[in-house]
Design a protein around this nucleic acid. Structure first.
Length: 351
DNA sequence: TCTGGGGTCCTATAGCCT
DNA sequence: TCTGAGGCTATAGGACCC
């Protein structure tokens, strides 16, 4: 890193949910722990977080709990306790705010800090943050330091868990280019597969593809993004505050449902929950969308725009039921969801 | 007995208007 | 009046993130 560049930290808590559970139940330390769903691997659900011991057995986030149980039968399975994780997350973010006013909260377990204006070296700040998180919360985290968010995020992942990685000017070719394209933010399974089909496996491979070819393959926006990202170029600012765009609730049935009355009743409950969230946050919604996922995992949505913003369970349920009626056929339903969109802040003129 | 839940953003398409 | 090009909006789907 050199003068004139920003100094960005990415701080990421290691296996966050598992660490919180181990604080509450120290006997779990050193054991394979899998957190997800209702904590019962015979029920529907996926892995939210696996301890590093469970990861050694091949357990990964997003994997069905049943699969995790097959890979690691001796693992302890626990339900997700979001309230506990949110409380710990708030303490974590409060610590980070002591080190910079410019903090972008990513997920529940990570954040970016812009420390460009600090007189201290970013590495030193990173070490101090790691000390504080360990001393005050009893948690380990991994920190990446670079001159933009893209590289800071890649860096924090390089020496997980409990690592500190600095990417300096001139490091990109030697340290970033050998990594797989999947390490780039914005490259998921689908994009990775398409890149592999083009013979592009590493970030370095990607950097050697002419930007025009990427634009042709992935469209102007995504193509240009990939070309820049592969070169470590990212000027995006930290986003320190934002307005919610939508609020939703969805649920997967334990067993697929053929009875539309059951779907309708569930939809009403979800609508009440969404409405409660809207009121709590002080928004009204002008769009309501219903999502159905069928037994074969095919997913469809139907939405409607309302003449005026609503925040009552009754109004959202009424709109949702009209959407539901527009779905064709009588297929077994696996999941049903309700989303409120086009949010208008209460007491504001709207977006 | 595969495949959660809560979000954001992008893209394709269709209809409407000028 | 007809036709076409472009812009705008609403809608639905999909990729991606944690």
């Amino acid at each position: 890193m050199d003068e004139g560049r920003r100094r960005i930290l990415h701080v990421d808590l290691d296996a966050f949910f598992a660490q919180v559970e181990m604080l509450r139940r120290p006997a779990l330390r050193g054991q394979p722990v899998v957190i997800g769903g209702v904590g019962d691997p015979t029920r529907r659900g996926v892995v939210s977080t696996a301890s590093y011991e469970a990861r050694r057995a091949g357990v990964r986030s997003g994997m069905p709990l049943r699969t995790a149980a097959r890979l690691c039968p001796e693992a302890v399975f626990l339900p997700v306790d979001f309230a506990a994780y949110r409380a710990m997350s708030a303490r974590f973010k409060a610590i980070l705010r002591e080190f910079s006013e410019v903090v972008e909260e990513g997920g529940i377990d990570e954040a970016f800090l812009d420390v460009s204006s600090s007189a201290r070296a970013p590495e030193e700040i990173a070490r101090e943050i790691r000390r504080r998180v360990r001393a005050d919360l009893g948690l380990t985290c991994s920190v990446g330091v670079a001159w933009n968010k893209l590289l800071a995020k890649i860096a924090s992942d390089m020496e997980k868990p409990d690592g500190l990685t600095v990417i300096r000017a001139g490091d990109v070719e030697a340290r970033v280019w050998p990594l797989g394209v999947r390490k780039l933010l914005g490259v998921g399974p689908k994009t990775e597969e398409r890149l592999h089909a083009m013979g592009v496996r590493t970030i370095g491979d990607l950097a050697r593809v002419p930007p025009g070819a990427l634009a042709g393959e992935f469209g102007p926006a995504h193509g240009a993004y990939l070309a820049r990202a592969a070169r470590g170029v990212d000027n995006s600012p930290l986003v320190t505050e934002w307005e919610p765009k939508s609020m939703s609730r969805e649920t997967t049935f334990e067993h697929d449902v053929a009875d539309r009355d059951v779907v309708r009743a569930t939809l009403r409950e979800l609508a009440e929950d969404v409405a409660a969230s809207l009121r709590k946050a002080g928004y009204r919604a002008r769009n309501v969308t219903v999502k159905l996922r069928y037994a074969d995992f095919e997913t469809h949505t139907r939405g409607t725009t309302l003449p005026a913003g609503v925040d009552s369970g009754e109004a959202i349920a009424e709109a949702a039921l009209r959407c539901l009626a527009r779905f064709p056929g009588a297929r077994d339903v696996r999941l049903v969801g309700v989303r409120a969109g086009r949010l208008e802040p209460l007491g504001g003129g709207g977006p």
